[in-house]
Nucleic acid binder design. Structure first.
Lengths: 150, 150
DNA sequence: CCAAATTAGTTGCAAGTGAGACTATTATCA
DNA sequence: TGATAATAGTCTCACTTGCAACTAATTTGG
Protein backbone atom coordinates (compact mmCIF):
# COMPACT_ATOMS: atom_id res chain seq x y z
CA UNK A 1 0.00 0.00 0.00
CA UNK A 2 2.88 2.32 0.79
CA UNK A 3 4.88 3.48 -2.14
CA UNK A 4 8.00 1.34 -2.26
CA UNK A 5 11.15 2.71 -0.70
CA UNK A 6 14.07 3.02 -3.08
CA UNK A 7 17.41 3.46 -1.36
CA UNK A 8 19.01 4.57 -4.60
CA UNK A 9 16.65 7.55 -4.76
CA UNK A 10 16.98 8.33 -1.09
CA UNK A 11 18.52 11.76 -0.73
CA UNK A 12 20.73 11.06 2.31
CA UNK A 13 22.16 8.03 0.55
CA UNK A 14 22.83 9.97 -2.62
CA UNK A 15 24.41 12.83 -0.72
CA UNK A 16 26.66 10.45 1.12
CA UNK A 17 27.74 8.65 -2.01
CA UNK A 18 28.33 11.94 -3.77
CA UNK A 19 30.45 13.38 -0.98
CA UNK A 20 32.44 10.17 -0.72
CA UNK A 21 33.25 10.20 -4.40
CA UNK A 22 34.18 13.88 -4.40
CA UNK A 23 36.40 13.26 -1.39
CA UNK A 24 37.99 10.29 -3.07
CA UNK A 25 38.85 12.28 -6.16
CA UNK A 26 40.19 15.14 -4.16
CA UNK A 27 42.34 12.73 -2.24
CA UNK A 28 43.83 11.57 -5.50
CA UNK A 29 45.15 15.09 -5.88
CA UNK A 30 46.90 15.56 -2.57
CA UNK A 31 47.02 12.02 -1.25
CA UNK A 32 49.17 9.91 -3.50
CA UNK A 33 51.40 12.74 -4.77
CA UNK A 34 52.00 14.44 -1.43
CA UNK A 35 51.42 11.69 1.08
CA UNK A 36 48.86 13.46 3.23
CA UNK A 37 45.33 12.49 4.22
CA UNK A 38 42.17 14.52 4.49
CA UNK A 39 42.79 15.74 8.04
CA UNK A 40 46.29 16.82 7.13
CA UNK A 41 45.03 18.61 4.07
CA UNK A 42 42.55 20.48 6.25
CA UNK A 43 45.30 21.55 8.62
CA UNK A 44 47.47 22.77 5.75
CA UNK A 45 44.58 24.63 4.13
CA UNK A 46 43.59 26.28 7.39
CA UNK A 47 47.11 27.34 8.29
CA UNK A 48 47.66 28.56 4.77
CA UNK A 49 44.56 30.68 4.84
CA UNK A 50 45.06 32.14 8.27
CA UNK A 51 48.80 32.21 8.43
CA UNK A 52 48.74 30.46 11.77
CA UNK A 53 46.26 28.94 14.20
CA UNK A 54 46.11 26.73 17.24
CA UNK A 55 45.02 23.11 16.96
CA UNK A 56 41.86 24.02 18.79
CA UNK A 57 40.93 26.62 16.20
CA UNK A 58 41.43 24.07 13.47
CA UNK A 59 39.29 21.57 15.35
CA UNK A 60 36.47 24.06 15.65
CA UNK A 61 36.53 25.41 12.14
CA UNK A 62 36.88 22.07 10.40
CA UNK A 63 34.70 20.09 12.81
CA UNK A 64 37.30 17.35 12.97
CA UNK A 65 38.00 15.44 16.18
CA UNK A 66 40.85 16.84 18.23
CA UNK A 67 42.70 13.55 18.34
CA UNK A 68 42.60 13.41 14.56
CA UNK A 69 43.95 16.94 14.29
CA UNK A 70 46.60 16.19 16.88
CA UNK A 71 47.85 13.24 14.85
CA UNK A 72 47.64 15.20 11.61
CA UNK A 73 49.74 18.01 13.06
CA UNK A 74 52.21 15.53 14.43
CA UNK A 75 52.65 13.94 11.01
CA UNK A 76 52.94 17.28 9.26
CA UNK A 77 55.68 18.30 11.67
CA UNK A 78 57.51 15.08 10.86
CA UNK A 79 57.18 15.96 7.18
CA UNK A 80 58.53 19.41 7.94
CA UNK A 81 55.45 21.19 6.66
CA UNK A 82 54.32 22.62 9.99
CA UNK A 83 56.09 24.07 13.01
CA UNK A 84 55.07 25.40 16.35
CA UNK A 85 55.48 29.12 16.70
CA UNK A 86 56.64 30.72 19.92
CA UNK A 87 54.12 30.10 22.65
CA UNK A 88 51.72 32.84 23.49
CA UNK A 89 51.02 33.84 27.08
CA UNK A 90 48.83 30.75 27.46
CA UNK A 91 51.25 27.89 27.16
CA UNK A 92 48.45 25.42 26.44
CA UNK A 93 47.77 27.12 23.12
CA UNK A 94 50.41 25.98 20.71
CA UNK A 95 50.41 28.35 17.79
CA UNK A 96 50.99 26.43 14.55
CA UNK A 97 52.19 27.71 11.22
CA UNK A 98 53.40 26.41 7.90
CA UNK A 99 57.13 26.15 7.37
CA UNK A 100 58.63 27.48 4.17
CA UNK A 101 58.31 23.97 2.74
CA UNK A 102 54.72 23.68 3.99
CA UNK A 103 53.85 26.98 2.35
CA UNK A 104 55.38 25.79 -0.90
CA UNK A 105 53.35 22.58 -0.81
CA UNK A 106 50.23 24.56 0.05
CA UNK A 107 50.76 26.86 -2.90
CA UNK A 108 51.24 23.88 -5.16
CA UNK A 109 48.12 22.07 -4.01
CA UNK A 110 45.67 24.97 -3.91
CA UNK A 111 45.44 25.47 -7.70
CA UNK A 112 44.90 21.74 -8.14
CA UNK A 113 41.99 21.52 -5.75
CA UNK A 114 40.56 24.76 -7.07
CA UNK A 115 40.49 23.19 -10.50
CA UNK A 116 38.69 20.15 -9.10
CA UNK A 117 36.13 22.40 -7.49
CA UNK A 118 35.70 24.25 -10.75
CA UNK A 119 34.76 21.01 -12.49
CA UNK A 120 31.99 20.53 -9.98
CA UNK A 121 30.75 24.07 -10.34
CA UNK A 122 30.74 23.69 -14.10
CA UNK A 123 28.55 20.63 -13.76
CA UNK A 124 26.15 22.63 -11.63
CA UNK A 125 25.99 25.15 -14.44
CA UNK A 126 23.13 27.58 -14.31
CA UNK A 127 21.81 26.02 -11.12
CA UNK A 128 24.98 26.92 -9.24
CA UNK A 129 23.53 29.82 -7.32
CA UNK A 130 20.45 27.89 -6.23
CA UNK A 131 22.46 24.87 -5.19
CA UNK A 132 24.92 26.92 -3.17
CA UNK A 133 22.19 28.81 -1.41
CA UNK A 134 20.37 25.54 -0.75
CA UNK A 135 23.52 24.12 0.80
CA UNK A 136 23.84 27.19 2.96
CA UNK A 137 20.26 26.76 4.15
CA UNK A 138 20.90 23.09 4.88
CA UNK A 139 23.97 23.97 6.89
CA UNK A 140 21.93 26.38 8.92
CA UNK A 141 19.11 23.88 9.39
CA UNK A 142 21.58 21.21 10.48
CA UNK A 143 23.39 23.66 12.69
CA UNK A 144 26.73 23.29 11.02
CA UNK A 145 26.70 26.79 9.64
CA UNK A 146 29.74 28.13 7.89
CA UNK A 147 30.21 29.97 11.17
CA UNK A 148 33.86 30.10 12.08
CA UNK A 149 35.15 28.91 15.41
CA UNK A 150 33.41 30.46 18.30
CA UNK B 1 48.33 37.91 -5.56
CA UNK B 2 45.99 34.95 -5.65
CA UNK B 3 42.68 35.31 -3.97
CA UNK B 4 42.94 33.61 -0.58
CA UNK B 5 41.73 30.06 -0.29
CA UNK B 6 38.98 29.52 2.26
CA UNK B 7 38.46 25.91 3.23
CA UNK B 8 35.13 26.76 4.83
CA UNK B 9 33.80 27.96 1.48
CA UNK B 10 35.30 25.09 -0.44
CA UNK B 11 32.50 23.07 -1.98
CA UNK B 12 33.99 19.58 -1.49
CA UNK B 13 34.57 20.35 2.17
CA UNK B 14 31.04 21.65 2.63
CA UNK B 15 29.56 18.67 0.82
CA UNK B 16 31.51 16.30 2.97
CA UNK B 17 30.53 18.01 6.19
CA UNK B 18 26.91 18.13 5.09
CA UNK B 19 26.78 14.45 4.18
CA UNK B 20 28.47 13.50 7.43
CA UNK B 21 25.94 15.42 9.47
CA UNK B 22 22.96 14.01 7.54
CA UNK B 23 24.38 10.52 7.99
CA UNK B 24 24.89 11.12 11.66
CA UNK B 25 21.31 12.21 12.15
CA UNK B 26 19.99 9.31 10.16
CA UNK B 27 22.05 6.98 12.25
CA UNK B 28 20.36 8.34 15.33
CA UNK B 29 17.13 6.97 13.90
CA UNK B 30 18.13 3.39 13.19
CA UNK B 31 21.40 3.09 15.10
CA UNK B 32 20.76 3.51 18.77
CA UNK B 33 17.13 2.25 18.73
CA UNK B 34 17.68 -0.78 16.50
CA UNK B 35 21.36 -1.53 16.94
CA UNK B 36 22.34 -1.52 13.30
CA UNK B 37 24.94 0.50 11.43
CA UNK B 38 24.86 2.18 8.06
CA UNK B 39 25.87 -0.89 6.07
CA UNK B 40 23.25 -2.99 7.80
CA UNK B 41 20.64 -0.36 7.16
CA UNK B 42 21.54 -0.44 3.47
CA UNK B 43 21.17 -4.19 3.36
CA UNK B 44 17.78 -4.03 5.05
CA UNK B 45 16.60 -1.25 2.77
CA UNK B 46 17.74 -3.07 -0.35
CA UNK B 47 16.21 -6.37 0.62
CA UNK B 48 13.02 -4.63 1.62
CA UNK B 49 12.73 -2.87 -1.70
CA UNK B 50 13.58 -5.84 -3.86
CA UNK B 51 12.22 -8.61 -1.75
CA UNK B 52 15.50 -10.48 -2.02
CA UNK B 53 18.95 -10.04 -3.49
CA UNK B 54 22.40 -11.56 -3.37
CA UNK B 55 25.20 -9.92 -1.44
CA UNK B 56 26.85 -9.08 -4.71
CA UNK B 57 23.81 -7.19 -5.94
CA UNK B 58 23.78 -5.20 -2.73
CA UNK B 59 27.47 -4.48 -3.11
CA UNK B 60 26.98 -3.13 -6.61
CA UNK B 61 23.90 -1.06 -5.99
CA UNK B 62 25.08 0.50 -2.76
CA UNK B 63 28.75 0.79 -3.72
CA UNK B 64 29.80 -0.64 -0.39
CA UNK B 65 32.78 -2.93 -0.05
CA UNK B 66 31.97 -6.62 -0.19
CA UNK B 67 33.65 -7.36 3.11
CA UNK B 68 31.51 -4.71 4.76
CA UNK B 69 28.35 -6.16 3.27
CA UNK B 70 29.44 -9.65 4.25
CA UNK B 71 29.79 -8.58 7.86
CA UNK B 72 26.55 -6.64 7.79
CA UNK B 73 24.66 -9.66 6.50
CA UNK B 74 26.31 -11.86 9.07
CA UNK B 75 25.21 -9.56 11.87
CA UNK B 76 21.69 -9.23 10.51
CA UNK B 77 21.39 -13.00 10.42
CA UNK B 78 22.50 -13.13 14.04
CA UNK B 79 19.80 -10.58 14.82
CA UNK B 80 17.30 -12.74 12.95
CA UNK B 81 16.43 -10.01 10.46
CA UNK B 82 17.83 -11.75 7.40
CA UNK B 83 17.94 -15.31 6.16
CA UNK B 84 19.39 -17.11 3.21
CA UNK B 85 16.82 -18.31 0.76
CA UNK B 86 17.13 -21.68 -0.95
CA UNK B 87 20.15 -21.62 -3.18
CA UNK B 88 19.61 -21.04 -6.85
CA UNK B 89 21.33 -23.17 -9.46
CA UNK B 90 24.56 -21.28 -8.80
CA UNK B 91 25.54 -22.20 -5.29
CA UNK B 92 27.90 -19.24 -5.04
CA UNK B 93 24.99 -16.82 -5.17
CA UNK B 94 23.36 -16.85 -1.79
CA UNK B 95 19.94 -15.33 -2.16
CA UNK B 96 19.14 -13.19 0.85
CA UNK B 97 15.80 -12.03 2.14
CA UNK B 98 14.27 -10.41 5.16
CA UNK B 99 12.72 -12.65 7.77
CA UNK B 100 9.30 -11.82 9.14
CA UNK B 101 11.05 -9.94 11.95
CA UNK B 102 13.35 -8.18 9.49
CA UNK B 103 10.39 -7.08 7.43
CA UNK B 104 8.69 -5.76 10.55
CA UNK B 105 11.78 -3.75 11.50
CA UNK B 106 12.07 -2.51 7.93
CA UNK B 107 8.49 -1.31 7.95
CA UNK B 108 9.06 0.44 11.23
CA UNK B 109 12.19 2.23 10.13
CA UNK B 110 11.12 3.35 6.66
CA UNK B 111 8.60 5.97 7.81
CA UNK B 112 11.16 7.39 10.22
CA UNK B 113 13.84 7.88 7.62
CA UNK B 114 11.30 9.17 5.13
CA UNK B 115 10.39 11.85 7.64
CA UNK B 116 14.04 12.76 8.01
CA UNK B 117 14.36 13.05 4.25
CA UNK B 118 11.27 15.20 4.15
CA UNK B 119 12.89 17.68 6.53
CA UNK B 120 15.76 18.04 4.13
CA UNK B 121 13.47 18.47 1.15
CA UNK B 122 11.50 21.10 3.02
CA UNK B 123 14.67 23.03 3.63
CA UNK B 124 15.42 22.91 -0.08
CA UNK B 125 12.01 24.42 -0.66
CA UNK B 126 11.40 25.87 -4.06
CA UNK B 127 14.91 24.96 -5.19
CA UNK B 128 14.21 21.27 -4.71
CA UNK B 129 13.87 20.41 -8.37
CA UNK B 130 17.02 22.24 -9.36
CA UNK B 131 19.04 20.72 -6.58
CA UNK B 132 17.89 17.20 -7.36
CA UNK B 133 18.61 17.57 -11.03
CA UNK B 134 22.01 19.06 -10.19
CA UNK B 135 22.77 16.06 -8.01
CA UNK B 136 21.77 13.77 -10.84
CA UNK B 137 24.13 15.58 -13.18
CA UNK B 138 26.92 15.38 -10.64
CA UNK B 139 26.36 11.66 -10.27
CA UNK B 140 26.63 11.25 -14.00
CA UNK B 141 29.74 13.43 -14.19
CA UNK B 142 31.36 11.47 -11.37
CA UNK B 143 30.28 8.21 -12.90
CA UNK B 144 28.30 7.03 -9.94
CA UNK B 145 25.02 7.31 -11.71
CA UNK B 146 21.89 6.05 -10.05
CA UNK B 147 22.45 3.14 -12.38
CA UNK B 148 21.47 -0.09 -10.72
CA UNK B 149 23.80 -3.06 -10.59
CA UNK B 150 25.00 -4.07 -13.96
C1' DC C 1 45.89 32.34 47.89
C1' DC C 2 44.30 27.68 47.29
C1' DA C 3 41.06 24.01 45.65
C1' DA C 4 38.16 22.84 42.06
C1' DA C 5 36.82 23.43 37.50
C1' DT C 6 38.07 24.34 32.73
C1' DT C 7 40.80 24.11 28.61
C1' DA C 8 44.55 22.45 25.16
C1' DG C 9 46.66 18.79 23.52
C1' DT C 10 48.31 13.75 23.67
C1' DT C 11 47.79 8.89 23.89
C1' DG C 12 46.02 4.02 24.84
C1' DC C 13 42.38 1.24 23.56
C1' DA C 14 38.66 -0.80 21.09
C1' DA C 15 35.66 -0.93 17.24
C1' DG C 16 35.21 -0.52 12.40
C1' DT C 17 36.84 -0.85 7.53
C1' DG C 18 39.25 -1.69 3.08
C1' DA C 19 42.66 -4.46 0.70
C1' DG C 20 43.60 -8.57 -0.69
C1' DA C 21 44.40 -13.54 0.15
C1' DC C 22 41.72 -17.61 0.35
C1' DT C 23 37.86 -21.25 -0.42
C1' DA C 24 34.23 -22.96 -3.05
C1' DT C 25 31.74 -23.03 -7.13
C1' DT C 26 30.82 -22.32 -11.94
C1' DA C 27 32.17 -20.90 -16.72
C1' DT C 28 35.30 -21.01 -20.66
C1' DC C 29 37.57 -23.14 -24.22
C1' DA C 30 41.37 -25.70 -26.22
C1' DT D 1 37.12 -33.54 -20.69
C1' DG D 2 40.37 -31.07 -18.13
C1' DA D 3 43.02 -27.00 -17.17
C1' DT D 4 42.44 -22.17 -16.55
C1' DA D 5 39.84 -18.23 -15.57
C1' DA D 6 36.22 -15.92 -13.35
C1' DT D 7 32.89 -15.12 -9.66
C1' DA D 8 30.65 -15.04 -4.82
C1' DG D 9 31.53 -14.77 -0.39
C1' DT D 10 34.55 -15.12 3.94
C1' DC D 11 38.43 -14.03 6.64
C1' DT D 12 42.86 -12.12 8.25
C1' DC D 13 45.74 -8.21 8.59
C1' DA D 14 46.97 -3.54 8.90
C1' DC D 15 45.41 0.89 9.39
C1' DT D 16 42.26 4.57 10.83
C1' DT D 17 39.39 6.85 14.02
C1' DG D 18 36.56 8.18 17.89
C1' DC D 19 36.23 7.91 22.74
C1' DA D 20 37.80 8.74 27.01
C1' DA D 21 41.47 8.92 30.23
C1' DC D 22 45.42 11.51 31.12
C1' DT D 23 48.90 15.52 31.62
C1' DA D 24 49.82 20.22 31.78
C1' DA D 25 48.42 24.93 32.11
C1' DT D 26 45.18 28.38 33.35
C1' DT D 27 40.94 30.30 35.30
C1' DT D 28 37.43 30.79 38.78
C1' DG D 29 35.24 31.06 43.31
C1' DG D 30 35.51 30.98 48.04
Amino acid sequence: MNEPFDLLQFLPFRLNRLAAEVSRRLHEIYGEPYGIDVAEWRVVATLGARGGATAQEIVRSTRTHKSTISRAVSHLMKLGWVERGRQAKDRRNLELQLTRLGAKMHDEIIPLVRAAEKDILLTLGKDTAQVLSAITRLEAALDIGGADDR
